[in-house]
Design a protein around this nucleic acid. Sequence first.
DNA 1: CTCTACCACTGCAAAATTGCAATGAATGAA
DNA 2: TTCATTCATTGCAATTTTGCAGTGGTAGAG
Lengths: 217, 217
Amino acid sequence: MAGLRERKKQRTRRALIDAALRLFARKGYADTTLAEIAAAAEVSTRTFFSYFNGKDDLVFHDGEERMERALALLAGRRPGETAGALLLRLVEAGFGWALEDEALTFEEAELRMRLIMEEPALRARALLLMYDSQLKLAAALRQACPDELDEVEAAAAVGALFGAVKLAVMAHLGHERSLKDLQTTGRRAAELALDGLRALETRAAGRIPVEPPGMAS
Amino acid sequence: MAGLRERKKQRTRRALIDAALRLFARKGYADTTLAEIAAAAEVSTRTFFSYFNGKDDLVFHDGEERMERALALLAGRRPGETAGALLLRLVEAGFGWALEDEALTFEEAELRMRLIMEEPALRARALLLMYDSQLKLAAALRQACPDELDEVEAAAAVGALFGAVKLAVMAHLGHERSLKDLQTTGRRAAELALDGLRALETRAAGRIPVEPPGMAS
DNA sequence: CTCTACCACTGCAAAATTGCAATGAATGAA
DNA sequence: TTCATTCATTGCAATTTTGCAGTGGTAGAG
């Protein structure tokens, strides 16, 4: 069932991605022109846009798979599992997937991070993708827990959880850390969102005399 | 101290904004070309880019003021005020500013909403602006409460709070609601983030028999 | 007033993006 | 095999964006 057309398309798609990532790594994102990428993949620049929405999409070519896995996880809610527990399970699974994938394509993950940090256009694209993802996740969560959540609560829950992880991780990307540290940061942020911001008071009260966990400088 | 140069610049800036918003309202965002906007403001298209970073910036021309007010509020933390209380005060103040401004420029606020909904490019820009704002707010929060929060917690707190409000509000913008309803939605989302996602369980438990608050359909 | 440094404005060129329309290869039915 | 349909590919033109360099007016010192 793998028609010639389909195979050729996939080959061209991969050629575009590979050529682009190689060029990005060597010359940087801004200094790589679409003409170069298209030439390296043996297609016209116009054709490029029937494969990707723009130069930035090349960097996020693997977005769909993760989303599907996440939606599947939410749909597979265990009986009696609360929304909070379900979301926590999603976050943990997400960290697992990150290590998984990035073990296979570690260089690519690192390249992506570097590019996102230095190119505002890529940052904007990443944020838009995350936003769309969160809308879908919120809808899925609502589907999974119709009795426990209304639409506002589902959206707020997803937004709070991912907003916390996103900002905490991004804020620390500027500090050059290992993936392990990043994971710890993300987990702490998720915990904070689950416990609620009001819990900060009590949490801080018991900590003042001792070490601020995870500080570097 | 208002040199002729400066006055002329401000006049041109306003001319660009006014012309653009008028054209956007009449012909839509995508169908309005930069050439038209520049012509209406009596400058070259090249000059436009010394006033704004792009067509999308015209829609968000008033972003700085709000940010400054927010940062000032955080800097003016009251003695003994917890981080949670401070953030809550920020959210409430934000809603107040929204009504304030949007009373003066109500049509503009509505236009902006409409444009953001229909143009992905504007959505991306809005998200990037919010992201940058949140980074600044997190830094300011950390400055305001050095004893209560470390960097990760500050970022996570800001991310959770604004992430919740953002996603809840945006999710409901598709449903054509009044500003009043939107405010209620935002407030509920903020409350949820403050209480924490785990609190959803108890919250839901006490609600199942009665009305789901704020539902429409 | 004059001179000089600065700065807003502009055109030009390259690159990114997108709609339109034509072409030709791949596919499936007869 | 043959024919009609589908669709990937392409060129072209318009638009958005950005760096470079030249022009002319503005501001401040003398």
